[in-house]
C-alpha cells in the first residue's frame, strides 16, 4: 500500500489578542488517519504551557493493520510560525512482514516554523517477528522553534523474537545538523544484541527536547538519572536527548518521562 498524509497548523489572530493554532490542512490517507483531539493530560514539559486554544491537537490512528512489508507511507507535518501542535498516536504501531518479503517504509518530513512548537509523542513501534521496517524522519527547525519528540521501539511482542527495524531520525536547525542517529536491530543488524547496542534489552527509546530558551548548561544537567540504563545527554546549549533502554514498554516510558522531569527540575531557563 502507498499512502501520503499531510498535516499543517498555522497561527491565526483571535479576539482580544488571543491567537489560536488552527489546523490549515488535514489529509488522511490509507492507514494514516488524522483526527482532531482534545488534551488527554499534561504534556511532559509543563513549562511550555500548551493549554488553551494556542495549541492544536491531532491524533494519528492506524486505519489498518501493519505497516506490512511492501507498504510505503509518507507523512508531512508543517507547524507554521508561532503556532503550536501536539501530535499523538491512538495506539502503538505493529510492524509486520509482508507477503513478498519486501521492507515496509515510513518516511516523515517535519518543518517547525519560526518560534513554533511541536510536541510529538508517538506510541511505540513494535517489531513483530519477520518484519523489515524502515523508519526515516527528517525534522527541520527554524529559528526559535521548540521540539519535543519521542521515539520508542519494542523488540517483538511478548516472548517473540523481533524482525529487523532501521530507524533514522535527523534533526536540523536550518541547514545545520543537530542530531542524526540510525538504529538497526533484529536479524539484519550485526551485533545488535551485544553489550554495545542493546545488551539483550527489549525496549529502547529516546526523547529529544529542543528549547532555545533553555540554555542547557552541560554542568547544570545530570548526566545520569536515578534509573539504570538511562542517560541525559546535552547535544548543544539548547538541545537535550534523554535516552533509555529497558526490559519492557512500561519501564521504558517511566525512564523517559522521569528523565524529562529531571531536566525540567534542574535546567533553569535563561532570559531570552
Amino acid at each position: 500500500m502507498r499512502a501520503r498524509a499531510e498535516l499543517a497548523v498555522a497561527l491565526t489572530a483571535g479576539a482580544g489578542g488571543r491567537d489560536r493554532s488552527r489546523v490549515a490542512r488535514l489529509r488522511s490517507d490509507g492507514p494514516l488517519l488524522l483526527r482532531p483531539a482534545i488534551a488527554t493530560g499534561p504534556e511532559p514539559l509543563r513549562r511550555w504551557d500548551l493549554t488553551g486554544r494556542g495549541t492544536a491537537r491531532i491524533s494519528r490512528a492506524a486505519g489498518a493493520g501493519g505497516p506490512l512489508g511492501g507498504d510505503h507511507l509518507r507523512f508531512h507535518v508543517d507547524v507554521g510560525a508561532g503556532a503550536a501542535l501536539v501530535l499523538r498516536d491512538v495506539s502503538a504501531t505493529l510492524a509486520l512482514p509482508g507477503p513478498h518479503g519486501e521492507p515496509s517504509r515510513i518516511r516523515t518530513t517535519v518543518r517547525v516554523g519560526r518560534k513554533a512548537t511541536l510536541v510529538w509523542l508517538p506510541e511505540p513501534v513494535i517489531a513483530a517477528r519477520g518484519c523489515d521496517h524502515h523508519i526515516r524522519t527528517d525534522v527541520v527547525l527554524e529559528p526559535g522553534a521548540r521540539l519535543l519528540l519521542r521515539e520508542e521501539l519494542l523488540l517483538g511482542r511478548h516472548g517473540e523474537q523481533p524482525g529487523t527495524v532501521r530507524q533514522r531520525l535527523r534533526v536540523c536547525r536550518g541547514d545545520r545538523p543537530l542530531y542524526d542517529q540510525e538504529l538497526a536491530v533484529g536479524p539484519g543488524a550485526p551485533g545488535w544484541q551485544g553489550p554495545a547496542v542493546t545488551g539483550g534489552r527489549r525496549a529502547l527509546g529516546s526523547l529529544l527536547v529542543v528549547d532555545p530558551q533553555w540554555g542547557a548548561e552541560r554542568d547544570g544537567l545530570p548526566a545520569v538519572t536515578a534509573h539504570p540504563d538511562t542517560a541525559v545527554l546535552p547535544l548543544s546549549d539548547s538541545a537535550v536527548l534523554v535516552t533509555a533502554l529497558a526490559e519492557d514498554a512500561i519501564a521504558l516510558r517511566r525512564r523517559l518521562d522521569d528523565g524529562v522531569a529531571e531536566l525540567e527540575r534542574t535546567a533553569a531557563p535563561v532570559a531570552r
Binding site: 535527523r170 540510525e182 534489552r201 529502547l204 542517560a231
Partner: peptide, 9 residues
C-alpha cells in the same frame, strides 16, 4: 549515522 544506544548510556 548508525548509533549504539548502550555505548552512549
Amino acid at each position: 549515522a548508525w548509533g549504539a544506544p548502550l555505548l552512549d548510556v
